[in-house]
């Protein structure tokens, strides 16, 4: 028997909104046209609260809460745009840009990159922390795809889509802290992967130029994500 769905009413940026009890602050905000930046979240994949861009303030709660994994509650008062949050978001982006080598002008996704466009949207015009310039490999062993670790922001969308949607679990994360890196299989060249089905889902969900398809001009490197909501819908059906 279906349980009755309960609806919660709350305020986001002083606007009265309502959402189902199983919806997150992010979902309800988006339904109401309120913008909250995100990077690790992607509709259709499990949310992990890792990038910290979607942090919001909730009245009466001392901690900042990630909107992508926080459920709405009755009477909640959410603030998404305070100066403090904007500053933290810009700093988060600055840390990401400083972490690896982002040379947008020569990047395969220049102009179609979520990291790049978020920087612009959030008013980040330069990186205030020193660039680290690590030396990182590019793996072009796969016949169709390339992984360029210089551009990876470790959002793990590739890991999740490959595991949760494609069911191949080719990707994973190796190492700790600043030395973390995404790997294919047991850190073998992607081209040698026994598990990869070459479906291209990881490439399409990657927000940056870390995963891309060989031999396409930059203008055609728009990533296609329309398939995800459909696949998730099918998955919900299955549940």
């Amino acid at each position: 028997m279906n349980q009755p769905v309960r609806v919660k009413t709350l305020k986001i940026d002083d606007r009265d909104v309502s959402g189902r009890e199983d919806e997150t602050i992010l979902e309800v905000a988006r339904q109401n046209g309120i913008f909250i930046p995100t990077l690790c979240h992607l509709d259709g994949l499990t949310s992990i609260g890792a990038c910290r861009l979607c942090l919001v303030e909730v009245k009466g709660v001392s901690r900042l809460l990630p909107a992508c994994v926080t459920r709405v509650e009755e009477g909640m008062e959410v603030y998404t745009q305070s100066e403090r949050l904007q500053k933290y978001r810009r700093m988060t982006l600055e840390l990401l840009f400083s972490e690896r080598n982002h040379i947008c002008s020569v990047c395969v996704v220049n102009g179609h990159c979520e990291l790049q466009s978020l920087a612009q949207t959030l008013g980040m015009t330069h990186v205030g922390v020193p660039y680290r310039f690590p030396r990182l490999p590019v793996d072009a062993s796969h016949e169709r795809f390339v992984v360029d670790h210089n551009r990876c922001i470790l959002c793990t969308r590739c890991v999740r889509v490959c595991d949760e949607i494609e069911g191949a679990h080719t990707w994973d994360v190796m190492g700790r802290g600043i030395d973390s890196r995404v790997i294919t299989d047991l850190s073998e060249p992607w081209g040698d992967s026994e598990t990869c089905t070459s479906c291209g889902k990881c490439v399409n969900v990657c927000p940056t130029g870390a995963l891309f398809e060989k031999g396409k001009p930059v203008a055609d490197r728009l990533k296609k994500r329309q398939f995800l909501p459909y696949l998730t819908m099918m998955r919900e059906e299955r549940r």
């Binding site: 992990i48 609260g49 890792a50 988060t92 400083s98 020193p130 680290r132 922001i153 470790l154 190492g175």
Partner: peptide, 14 residues
């Protein structure tokens, strides 16, 4: 740092 979230992964290194 486990490296999952950006502030700790990159912030501690900085």
């Amino acid at each position: 740092s486990c490296g999952k979230c950006v502030p700790c992964r990159v912030g501690t290194a900085q």
